[in-house]
Design a protein around this nucleic acid. Structure first.
Length: 864
RNA sequence: GCCCGGGUGGCGAAACUGGUAGACGCAAGGGACUUAAAAUCCCUCGGCCUAAACAGCCAUGCCGGUUCGAGUCCGGCCCCGGGCACCA
């Protein structure tokens, strides 16, 4: 055995061993219990970042832990390979997105291998591979025929200079990122997945996911946004039609003083036809991007249309306004406005001098019904004719009856969730398998013609979709009538690929279908791990897709992911100087030197190259623009993969954000060195060992053994809870304890204890730092391969103690410590507590009102 | 704007169901070893008061409440982060 810890050597040797022995190959047919552990696959951006390292270390720790629990583990890896960055890189470097993407995959695959992750590489897949996306196109044609995919118009960001559609990310402060031109909202035809058909099931399914974080389920529930309310019809003044609105507050119906419609509403368009002022107002409202955040924070603006509707109960005329805060995508694209009882309506009515009519009584009825702001609580109705005196529920029921009688609406369940628009006017994505025929309409591509292959040698130029300029791609014949027809040139949202890859890993090489019978063995995924930023969209779409392919008869079960772990972001300190023009220059942390005071606080930070001060900018997410990203490659080169893995697991619990610390990395490295040296120095004592029973051991050895098993018990608990930071801390404590075992006595009990303790420590660490664990397991002569070793078990008999220490409180304040026999009765414990010298000081001469005893923990004496 | 999280020493954090706040580690200070440095090892380490204390007081973002007892439960507020449907 080597005296020095040499991570580069032992890591390469361990990785070679795993590869040659196919240790991580997942077996499709195996009598052991299956365990499918999946980490969200990366976008092949070029290099791994620390977020990846963290995500995949967590996944690998769980997978290796489960393998040691005796399970048949599958942990695959692949590439979310379509997407916008490849097109941007292509424009910059004049390289086709396909080449750029495949080169990146090759590089990043090596990075993942150098970190020692236990993937079954035979199952690797990339979503830009026609063998992958052909099944997505196949599913598309099925869903299209079932009506679960349909076409309608949708709103996009339009750059009027570049004449192209922009992603939200490409709109900065309302302007195109390349052209700088103000963006407009524009409507274009798009294909939609009818996710709303599954809204009820997607919502109800959350209650059957006990292994998901409450936080994520809450976000999804709110996103789906089921609400019970009323559809109310306001007849047009000329009687030609009705204006439909949805409201969750029908009890305020008698307080409606106007109605407002979205700028895209047909009524707005009709009114604008012979009203130039209104027309230009609507045009004005189209400025800016499409994100909800932007729309919700913009100044509320509106204009009267000159049109009127009538109140369904009173028949009174109400003006119709166009308002920029009404969303066409939610409900009917129109709202009834009750300024007295809705904040937004109140603000709008105040601004435009519209009337405010109160119909809900304030709790104190004597207060004047004058408004500084809307009163939005529930209450008793007044000013509401036949509904006066009713509460919310009563008013709801009675109004429902009246509306239904008049055929002007009724109760309705409304969802906030909208159908999923998947058309993208981009090149580097999965082609939509539709052919447009002048005679037959939109015709799906036939199975025999799939895949619709994306040409891979194209360099986009930033002006619209290259596929639309490629006759060789779009010129085709109608599958139905055979006449010349045009192929759809839009591609799919890349969220579509990532919605079903988890299923394809089970049958990665299947040629008979999207997934095959192997998926029924492996699914659902037992543990899914990924960033919290995916809490809603990706995870909701994947749940939706699982139900779609279930309903195609391809998989069984209703949910794709049994347990979910959402890991926090990786942050690092930032350093910058501000230019005179306000622009900031960010400096790489390694180029900054610090001066600290006696308490270790940073006093000054200076740039190493010029010695001048830089500003400390606080802790932010690692990013290129902030220049604070730490390259995993440098870390591996300097310390090895085990140190990188140990640090990311130790620095914070998985769900929390993790602050990068170079010093912390040093600490992790130091621990591994200490472990290696300890094993080297004690190695010769391992040959003497036999079975362990500890029977001949003295009290000191028994106490050490109790500590060891106490630590193991805590570590096992933390492993189950996925609190890996405290598992690492337990491993450190364990090494500290083992170092306390006397070495010079020659007593056999200590050798046995050492052997037992080290075997526990190596197995605890094996999932986290697999290379050093692998090497020491062999070096110290333990049998077999540690990746398959049985998980250590706690010997409960080792934990038994004769005496326990109790704390004594007086009125909840700590005043003393006593020791008591483990099984001591309450009276004895109380007597011992009252006899404590310091406790006496606080109890003497006072009435003892009550004594609370928590067995094995504390005594609290309450005095008057 | 809306939804969801988080806030504990100089720093990352720990504290199981409401029961000793600060485990484990980092940084810092002191010491040993060394020609020296690195590495390694030992000691100290929330604040105040104190000669010192296993004597006391304060302390888990802020204000208030429940309880024998609150970092943990409840109400209100402040700050920071994630998401908001075309970044992935």
């Amino acid at each position: 055995m080597q005296e020095r810890y040499t991570p580069a050597e032992i890591e390469q040797a361990a990785q070679q061993y795993w590869e040659q022995n196919k240790v991580f190959k997942a077996h499709d047919h195996d009598p052991r219990e299956k365990y499918y552990c999946l980490s969200m696959f990366p976008y092949p951006s070029g290099r791994l970042h620390m977020g990846h390292v963290r995500n995949y270390t967590i996944g690998d720790v769980i997978a290796r832990y489960q393998r040691m629990q005796g399970k048949n583990v599958m942990q695959p890896m692949g590439w979310d390979a379509f997407g916008l960055p490849a097109e941007n890189a292509a424009m910059q470097n004049k390289v086709p997105p396909a080449k750029w993407t495949y080169d990146n995959i090759a590089y990043m695959r090596n990075q993942l291998k150098s970190l020692g992750f236990g993937y079954d590489w035979e199952r690797e897949l990339a979503t830009c591979d026609p063998n992958y996306y052909r099944w997505e196109q196949w599913l598309f044609t099925r869903l299209f025929q079932k009506g679960l995919i349909y076409k309608k118009s949708g709103v996009v960001n339009w750059d009027p200079v570049d004449q192209t559609v922009l992603a939200n990310e490409q709109v900065i402060d309302g302007r195109g990122w390349r052209s700088g031109a103000p963006i407009e909202r524009r409507e274009i035809p798009m294909y939609y997945f009818r996710i709303t058909a599954y809204a009820e099931e997607l919502l109800a399914g959350l209650d059957r996911l006990p292994g998901w974080p409450e936080q994520v389920k809450a976000m999804q529930r709110n996103w789906i946004g089921k609400s019970r309310g009323m559809e109310v019809h306001f007849p047009y003044a000329d009687g030609s039609d009705v204006l439909k609105v949805f409201t969750t507050r029908p009890d305020t119906l008698m307080g409606v003083t106007y109605v407002a419609v979205a700028t895209e509403h047909p009524l707005a368009a009709k009114a604008a036809a012979n009203n130039p002022k209104l027309r230009s107002f609507i045009e004005e409202c189209k400025k800016g991007g499409v994100t909800e955040a932007e729309i919700a924070t913009q100044e509320k603006k509106g204009m009267a249309t000159g049109e009127f509707v009538t109140h369904p109960f009173t028949g009174k005329k109400l003006p119709v306004w166009v308002a920029n805060y009404v969303l066409m995508g939610y409900g009917e694209g129109a709202v009834m406005a009750v300024p007295a009882h809705d904040e937004r309506d109140f603000e709008f009515a105040t601004k435009y001098g519209l009337p405010v009519k109160a119909v809900i009584q304030l709790p104190d009825a004597a207060l004047p019904q004058q408004f500084q702001s809307a009163y939005t609580e529930y209450g008793m109705l007044f000013n509401s004719g036949e509904f006066d005196g009713l509460d919310f529920e009563q008013a709801f029921d009675k109004m429902a009856v009246v509306l239904q009688t008049k055929k002007l609406g009724g109760p309705k369940i409304q969802f906030r969730l909208r159908d999923w628009g998947i058309s993208r006017q981009r090149y580097w994505g999965c082609p939509i398998p539709i052919i447009h025929c002048a005679a037959c309409g939109d015709v799906p591509v036939q199975d025999k013609d799939l895949p619709v292959a994306l040409p891979e040698d194209i360099v986009p130029d930033g002006s619209g979709n290259p596929l639309a300029k490629l006759p060789a791609f779009y010129e085709t014949q109608c599958p139905q009538c055979g006449k010349p027809a045009r192929r759809e040139t839009d591609t799919m949202d890349t969220f579509v690929e990532s919605s079903w890859y988890y299923a394809r890993f089970c049958s990665h090489d299947g040629v008979s279908g999207m997934v095959d019978e192997r998926a029924r063995y492996w699914l659902p995924v037992d543990q899914y791990i990924g960033g919290i930023e995916h809490a809603i969209l990706h995870l909701l779409y994947a749940r939706f897709f699982h139900k779609l392919i279930r309903d195609e008869g391809l998989v069984t079960g209703d949910e794709p992911f049994t347990k979910l772990l959402t890991q926090g972001m990786v942050l690092a300190e930032t350093f910058y100087r501000t230019h005179a023009n306000g622009k900031k220059d960010y400096f790489f942390p390694h180029d900054v030197a610090f001066e600290r005071d006696a308490k270790g606080r940073t006093v000054t930070a200076t740039l190493k190259s010029d010695g001048q001060a830089v500003k400390v900018g606080g802790i932010e997410t690692m990013s290129k623009s902030k220049n604070n990203g730490v390259d995993p490659q440098e870390l591996i080169a300097k310390y090895g993969a085990d140190t990188a893995r140990l640090f990311v697991m130790f620095a914070a619990p998985p769900e929390q954000s993790l602050e990068w610390s170079d010093a912390g990395v040093e600490g992790a490295y130091r621990f591994l060195k200490r472990l290696w040296v300890f094993a080297y120095e004690q190695g010769d004592r391992f040959e003497k060992q036999a079975g362990v029973n500890g029977s001949s051991a003295g009290p000191e050895a028994l106490a050490l053994r109790r500590d060891i098993h106490q630590i193991l018990k805590q570590a096992n608990y933390d492993f189950r809870k996925h609190q890996f930071n405290t598992v690492v801390s337990a491993a450190m404590k364990l090494l500290n304890t083992l170092e306390r075992i006397p070495t010079e006595t020659g007593a056999r009990a200590y050798d046995e204890l050492l052997h037992e303790g080290v075997s526990i420590l190596l197995r605890l660490l094996a999932p986290i730092t697999p290379h050093i664990s692998h090497a020491l397991w062999h070096e110290l002569g333990f049998a077999g391969d540690i990746t398959q070793a049985a998980w250590p078990e706690v010997d409960e008999s080792a934990l038994v103690q004769d005496e326990v220490e109790l704390v004594v409180q007086v009125n909840g304040k700590l005043r003393g410590h006593i020791t008591a026999a483990s099984g001591a009765n309450q009276a004895d414990v109380q007597a011992a507590a009252l006899a404590d010298g310091n406790v006496k000081r606080y109890t003497e001469g006072k009435e003892i009102k009550k004594v609370v005893i928590v067995p094995g923990k504390l005594v609290n004496i309450v005095v008057g």
